[in-house]
């Protein structure tokens, strides 16, 4: 059935949606042109997710929507009504030691392997890595590199990023 908007929502009327963000249910009124990225950063103060290119080319805005990694900059919030969103702020609660203050194993591995320098791309790299491991299609270093190619790191920490991901894939956590 059509959303209860007939005649359709006029351009100035916000639309009510429900999102579960990092485990917390939120009832929100959003303008239809609000991207998920802008909603997270500008409205909800979840500024861990970064705006890099804002065009789906850099991956800094990567978040998990229903467990799947996507570019939040190319996602309209209104289209994700009912979805579960996980941002970098919520990654720790996905880890094995859920509920404690412990980091997610991939976050620990990034620290252990020096997998960042300036850190701007890191939230996207982390969410992308968690999404990639959930997909389960990458097994070798070459496959990790290919599967992570949607996340650009201008500091060039790629080698250590692959090390960190490989470590978690092999050992479940950084040694």
């Amino acid at each position: 059935m059509l959303l209860d908007t007939s005649p359709p929502v006029s351009a100035d009327t916000p639309i009510g949606i429900t999102l579960t963000i990092n485990g917390q249910r939120r009832e929100l009124q959003v303008a239809p042109w609000t991207t998920l990225l802008d909603l997270l950063r500008e409205r909800l103060d979840l500024t861990g997710t970064k705006k890099g290119c804002d065009h789906g080319q850099c991956g800094a805005c990567t978040v998990l929507v229903n467990g799947t990694r996507v570019n939040a900059c190319l996602t309209l919030a209104v289209m994700k009504d009912g979805a579960e969103i996980t941002t970098v702020e919520g990654l720790a609660s996905l880890g094995e030691r859920k509920g404690s203050n412990a980091l997610h194993p991939i976050q620990e591995a990034f620290i252990e392997h020096d997998a960042f320098q300036c850190g701007y791309c890191t939230p996207g790299q982390l969410c992308s890595a968690v999404g990639m491991m959930g997909e389960g299609h990458a097994h070798s270093r070459d496959e990790i590199r290919e599967a992570m190619s949607g996340n650009i790191c201008r500091c060039g920490a790629y080698t250590n990023i692959v090390d960190a991901i490989e470590d978690v894939m092999q050992h479940g956590a950084a040694r």
């Binding site: 059935m1 059509l2 959303l3 908007t5 359709p8 929502v9 006029s10 351009a11 100035d12 639309i15 303008a31 239809p32 042109w33 209104v78």
Partner: peptide, 12 residues
């Protein structure tokens, strides 16, 4: 981005 109407369809 310009402003637009939003319609969510349930069938083709």
């Amino acid at each position: 981005m310009n402003r637009f109407d939003y319609v969510r369809a349930g069938t083709v």
